[in-house]
Amino acid sequence: MAVAIAVRVRFFARLRELAGAEIEALQVPPGSSLADVYDALRAKHTTLPARESVRAALNQEFADWNATVAGGDEVAFIPPVSGGRG
């Protein structure tokens, strides 16, 4: 049984600047959720915002925080989009 799985994390916009990276390879325990992945990243990049203000995407689709990641998945953490009255 694998002791860790590798996911590819992508950051955009303000989160990219706060994390100081566009792409990061991360090892997480099997069975980790998107919330676990984000918490692990926040422990490393302490300026990343609280999960409440961010949405998660798994393999280029919006996903629930409790969705489980698998090896080779592309995970993205997405700040609120432009929206507004513009």
Binding site: R14, F62, I78, P79, P80, V81, S82, G84
Partner: peptide, 24 residues
């Protein structure tokens, strides 16, 4: 599109530079 397409705006204004996130 404005609420669900992942595209972000960085605004360069007289008082500084801002990421626009929804209404913030």
């Amino acid at each position: 599109l404005k609420e669900s397409v992942p595209i972000w705006k960085k605004e360069h204004a007289a008082d500084g530079t801002y990421w626009i996130e929804g209404d913030q």
